[in-house]
């Protein structure tokens, strides 16, 4: 009988730790959503202040270094360290210019994290985003990774389409067709064009 009680207590402890971990991740994702809403809806902030607030959210919560390595795919092993570093920095800027304006124009009425799945190498936070004026939610999943006891988002999956995989496929095709040097130049050029085009 004592063995069963001990086993039960052990399972209870194990489950409560798993639940605590899930709550921790849920809170992390919901905090990102709330921070974005706060910045997007803050009418007192000037454009430059909004931009730096968005950059802060991106840098603190998204592991752009890791993502930049993943999206290079097999090309990562064939290019030198200087190009890897250049790509990582350009990619971070590209990400800021691409997603910054989207975060800033966030118009969701609610954002709900429904479920956290532990997928061994990462956590999957399954969320629903409800745009203004509709009851039909858009399903968005976040891949979350723990690094040095801190959580980071490494992927967004909208309606089954992963940003990481799509970009990896796109970059692979572009690098294969253009070569890494031309691709890096194009990435730099596009980032500058986006910077100019974005009011943010």
């Amino acid at each position: 009988m004592k063995i069963f009680i001990n086993l039960f207590l052990f399972l209870l402890l194990f489950c409560s730790e798993a639940f605590a971990q899930n709550d921790h991740i849920k809170l992390f994702v919901e905090n990102i959503g709330n921070e974005i809403v706060k910045v997007a809806n803050n009418k007192t902030l000037k454009d430059a202040q909004k931009k730096s607030a968005i950059i802060k959210i991106i840098d603190q919560n998204i592991d752009s270094q890791w993502i930049s390595r993943f999206v290079l795919g097999s090309h990562y092993k064939t290019i030198d360290e200087a190009k890897k570093a250049k790509f990582a920095e350009l990619y971070r800027q590209f990400m800021i210019e691409t997603y910054g304006p989207k975060f800033n124009s966030y118009n969701g009425k609610s954002f709900v994290v429904n479920k956290i799945e532990d997928q061994k190498n990462f956590f999957l936070a399954k969320a629903n985003f409800y745009p203004q004026g509709t009851n039909n939610p858009i399903s968005i999943d976040f891949r979350i990774k723990e690094k040095n006891q801190k959580l980071f988002v490494v992927d967004f999956i909208a309606e089954g389409v992963s940003l990481l995989e799509t970009q990896r496929s796109e970059f692979d095709s572009a690098i294969t067709n253009l070569g890494i040097d031309k691709f890096l130049n194009d990435l730099e050029l596009k980032t500058q064009q986006l910077k100019k085009a974005n009011k943010l």
Binding site: V161, E165, T166, S169, E170, N177, L178, K190, L194
Partner: peptide, 20 residues
């Protein structure tokens, strides 16, 4: 506006969505 190879993006997104 943002892509380097829009064909590759559409192909990848279509195939991922279908698998899903």
């Amino acid at each position: 506006q943002n892509s380097f190879d829009s064909y590759a993006i559409i192909r990848s997104a279509y195939l991922q969505r279908r698998i899903n």
